[in-house]
Computed example of a mutant assay.
Amino acid sequence: MKDSTLPPLSVSEEQHRSNPISRLYFSLLNEFKRGQTGYATIAIIAQSCIGSAAAMVLLMGNLHDFSKMTLVFFVTILCMAYNASVLANLKSKFSFNLLLASLLFSCSVIIASFL
């Protein structure tokens, strides 16, 4: 029993890089880290525009009022969370993940409203 080895608890970054989506994520994250000041400024403008378009589409839609306001709330909270993370100068990985969450949620709301 003393000679038995346990498998590693965490997956190494090298194993993550074998997946094409993970490779894209890590390359975008490294680029974001390198020029965080410029990319954060551009990203605030982009995600705010996409978030406001998602809110507009939701408010123009035919959903029930409670569902509509709940989705507008989540779009707004995610956009504000990213803006706050940039203003608070949080770690670049956390800010980047909030940016991705905000963009993915807003884009999915826009796409779902047209289906």
Rank of each mutant, 00 (worst) to 15 (best):
M1C: 03
M1Q: 06
M1K: 08
K2A: 15
D3A: 12
D3Q: 10
D3G: 11
D3H: 10
S4N: 10
T5Q: 14
L6N: 10
L6C: 12
L6R: 13
S10W: 13
S10D: 06
E13A: 09
E13M: 12
E13W: 08
E13P: 01
E13C: 02
Q15H: 13
H16E: 08
R17H: 05
S18Q: 11
P20E: 00
P20Y: 01
I21W: 08
S22I: 00
R23P: 01
L24S: 03
S27A: 15
S27P: 02
L28F: 05
L29Q: 06
N30A: 07
E31M: 11
F32T: 01
R34L: 13
R34P: 01
R34H: 05
R34Y: 03
G35A: 04
G35T: 03
Q36M: 09
Q36R: 15
T37K: 14
G38K: 09
A40S: 15
A40I: 00
T41M: 11
I42C: 06
I42Q: 15
A43W: 03
I44P: 00
I45P: 02
Q47H: 04
Q47S: 05
C49N: 13
I50R: 10
G51L: 03
G51M: 02
A53L: 13
A53F: 10
A53Y: 08
A54P: 03
A54W: 07
A54Y: 07
A55C: 12
M56Y: 14
M56P: 06
M56W: 11
L58N: 04
M60Q: 14
M60Y: 07
G61C: 04
N62F: 07
N62V: 05
L63D: 14
L63K: 13
L63N: 12
H64R: 12
H64N: 08
D65T: 09
D65L: 10
F66P: 02
S67M: 09
M69T: 07
M69D: 06
M69P: 02
T70E: 11
L71E: 06
V75Q: 04
I77Y: 12
I77D: 07
C79Q: 10
M80C: 09
M80W: 11
Y82Q: 00
Y82N: 01
A84F: 04
V86I: 04
V86H: 01
L87T: 00
A88I: 14
A88C: 14
A88H: 07
N89I: 00
N89V: 03
N89A: 15
L90S: 05
S95C: 11
S95W: 01
F96A: 01
N97Y: 00
N97V: 01
L98K: 01
L99K: 05
L99N: 11
L99P: 06
L103C: 07
L103A: 13
S108Y: 07
S108L: 06
V109D: 13
I110H: 03
I110Y: 05
S113R: 11
F114N: 07
L115G: 09
